[in-house]
């Protein structure tokens, strides 16, 4: 159910990209899509019973022996750490593309003096 809400947020972002005329609003739409995907990734590692879930860091009590074998209880309670790593990576990538996108917007504003994409139409055919 919650996953479909993520998809709804993704679709709102896509709608914003497709319909809005202002370049900054298009950029915001792309960000919305990005956040929807990030939220979705985080939720993949989520556990339903919040009081049972623990952070995936094995501390002293969770280790069975010196070799570092973790207890079954810890394995069944820890949240999945991989999606968090994915989200960190995707946030960094998102930051890079956002910076470039805003830079292009600023340069376009310097050249055309407007953010309205219906007025920025030199290329056609």
């Amino acid at each position: 159910m919650l996953y479909s809400l993520c998809f709804l947020l993704f679709m709102i972002g896509l709608y914003c990209v497709l319909v809005k005329k202002n370049m900054i609003k298009i950029v915001i739409g792309i960000l919305l899509m990005e956040y929807a995907v990030n939220l979705f990734l985080v939720m993949l590692g989520w556990r339903k019973l919040a009081e049972e879930a623990v952070a995936p860091i094995a501390a002293g009590g969770d280790l069975l022996d010196k070799a570092g074998t973790v207890s079954q209880l810890f394995v069944s309670r820890a949240v999945d750490p991989l999606p968090q790593a994915l989200v960190l990576t995707s946030i960094v990538i998102g930051l890079g593309s956002l910076a470039l996108m805003v830079a292009i917007c600023i340069r376009i504003y310097e050249k055309y003096g407007t953010f309205d994409i219906t007025k920025i139409r030199r290329l056609k055919g």
Binding site: V17, V37, I108, I120
Partner: peptide, 28 residues
């Protein structure tokens, strides 16, 4: 960094980023 180049870059970047988001969603 002239008029046409910037316009094309913005268009390309918008659609390219949307495409990447679709791919990332698929990966998830």
């Amino acid at each position: 960094c002239e008029h046409e180049e910037l316009e094309a870059a913005f268009k390309y970047m918008t659609l390219g980023t949307v495409a990447s988001m679709f791919v990332l969603f698929g990966v998830g």
